[in-house]
Nucleic acid binder design. Structure first.
Length: 512
DNA sequence: GCCGTTTTCGGCCCGACTGTTTTCAGTCG
């Protein structure tokens, strides 16, 4: 790799390791070796700073799941631009096989068998083989499997596998929860999974319920009009898809084991793995059905989630902390932190209104804040250079301050502060003059353009803004994108930054 | 391939569901 080339992103490194893992799985490698690549990819993907920089500093092995082999492959890529193991694997297996692994219901064993016996090496070949009836002729496959593969091919690999903003999914989830709670014999029901952990993005909607008649609840729930199709129904579990294409997993157990199920379904996967290891060390086996002493046939169910954690010698861990980031050790020591709750919030210092790209006016935002118990808000609309958001120049900013003064006179039980989210321009200057900023109660500075500048240049812009005496805060400093979609040739991202969003191409609302 | 309440090798979370076969392999979360 050329020395002046930009360092690969964490996502790029993670994709390389994931590719190796996929090929090794097809190669029939031992499962734990494959798992190690997937775990390492997850770790690099989630690392908040540059993993490449960390590797060059010789510190990559300080990350969990990264050992000598992973570090060597990352360094090999950084120094040479390729990984020999991956090159060898790519020469041996068609790239299309990895795409086939993305299809729901197709795992490594099946894909490898289709390739070895039928020569299927991509989606087109698989469709052809299915239509010719070749797949169902294989031992152990059958007609139903062949139909299922054709359905998966028709839907494509992306269907139901993307992530969505929490706020975009929650209304649908709450509506489904209402339907579930309304089913006869349901005594408890709630959302689980990443929704309950309040993750920024969620992959699907996980629901759990306690009932003396799980099969009847599942049958009833399967008829909910909000579901476009039911993929799978067993005696305790249902998998379906909503009208807007989001996967739904529902598990129903007896109320006596509701706590175990809720714990299991809330996750995360990493937390559950760590919790089960913790249980093992205490001579216990943990599952969604209960906790049992190793060697005993009977498991102990818990109606409440707290009982599960207490039985394992732990304080109840808030769902938001269940990511295997040290929360189990903290719970064992009684040292879990107290989380900030909505009731702790006294004000909101970053509020947009219809003066720029918000949807509501100043008064409406103040009333909404007051209804949530806030004591103050600060109106911080965009500045003039963000033309697509109708950013404010000094004259409009002054007009806005007059409206804020009027609102403060009318609404006596909440304080409305006058502020601005001023752009940090490409040359590091701020988008509004100092004397304008000096008259505001609170000034946020942020970058909305020229993201492609070198890291040092962007850092110098942020540093210059932070050193301005009128700037009180820097917004979205990482410029991360939580979800993105493509509109024509443009990529639109949401939540922390908008990249490549053309002036004349209004976002249709798909990301909101 | 990683890693340590088992610490340089042996173990690595656990169960539901499907399709096919009739006891289990494969997939998924």
């Amino acid at each position: 790799m050329a020395t002046d080339a930009p360092l690969p992103s964490n996502a790029e490194l993670a994709a390389l390791l994931r590719k190796i893992g996929g090929y090794l799985a097809l190669h029939g490698e031992e499962g734990y070796r494959v798992l190690a690549y997937e775990r390492a990819a997850d770790v690099l993907q989630d690392y908040p700073a540059s993993a490449a920089t960390l590797a060059l500093q010789g510190e990559l092995r300080s990350l969990p799941g990264i050992g000598a082999a992973m570090e060597a492959k990352v360094l090999e890529y950084l120094h040479t631009g390729l990984i020999h193991l991956l090159v060898d694997l790519e020469a041996r297996y068609p790239a299309g096989l990895l795409e086939l692994l993305q299809l729901p219901g197709l795992g490594t064993a099946t894909v490898r068998r289709l390739w070895e016996t039928l020569g299927v090496c991509d989606a087109a070949g698989l469709r052809e083989a299915c239509l010719a009836g070749s797949v169902e002729s294989l031992k152990g496959m059958g007609r139903r499997t062949q139909e299922r593969i054709l359905e998966a091919l028709a839907r494509g690999p992306a269907a139901g596998t993307g992530r969505h903003l929490l706020g975009a999914v929650e209304p649908t989830a709450l509506r489904l929860l209402e339907r579930l709670a309304g089913c006869d014999s349901v005594v408890q029901a709630t959302c689980a999974g990443s929704l309950r952990r309040r993750c920024s993005t969620v992959k699907d909607i996980d629901l759990v319920a306690g009932s003396s008649e799980p099969p009847a609840v599942l049958r009833r729930f399967a008829t909910t009009a909000d579901l476009s199709r039911v993929i799978q129904v067993g005696s305790t579990k249902l998998v379906a898809e909503t009208q807007n294409g989001i996967s739904v997993d529902l598990r129903v157990v007896s109320p006596e084991a509701y706590g175990n199920l809720l714990q299991h379904a809330t996750g995360s996967a990493a937390h559950n793995v760590a919790l089960r290891r913790h249980a093992q060390h205490r001579g216990l086996k943990l599952s969604e059905n209960g906790v049992e002493a190793v060697g005993r046939a009977r498991s102990l169910p818990f109606a409440e989630e707290e009982g599960v954690y207490r039985h394992l010698g732990l304080d109840l861990i808030p769902p938001e902390l269940r990511e295997d980031q040290g929360e189990i050790e903290a719970a064992a020591e009684g040292e879990l932190p107290r989380l900030i709750e909505p009731g702790d919030l006294r004000g909101d210092l970053h509020v947009h209104t219809s003066w720029s790209d918000g949807r509501e006016g100043i008064r409406e935002m103040a009333l909404a804040a007051r209804s949530r118990g806030l004591e103050y808000i600060c109106i911080t609309d965009h500045s003039r250079s963000l033309a697509m958001a109708r950013g404010l120049d000094p004259a409009r900013l002054e007009q806005q301050r007059e409206e804020i003064r009027d609102c403060n006179l009318e609404l006596t039980d909440i304080t409305i502060l006058a502020g601005c989210e001023v752009d940090i321009l490409a040359d590091g200057a701020l988008d509004l003059p100092d004397h304008t900023l000096a008259g505001l109660d609170f000034v946020i500075a942020s970058i909305h353009s020229a993201f492609s500048q070198p890291l040092e240049r962007i850092m110098s812009r942020l540093r210059a803004a932070a050193e301005n005496p009128h700037v009180d805060a820097i917004a979205h400093p990482s410029g991360r994108l939580l979800v993105s979609c493509v509109i024509s040739s443009l990529t639109v991202g949401q939540e922390d930054a908008i990249v490549g969003y053309g002036r004349d191409d209004p976002c249709p609302g798909c990301c909101r």
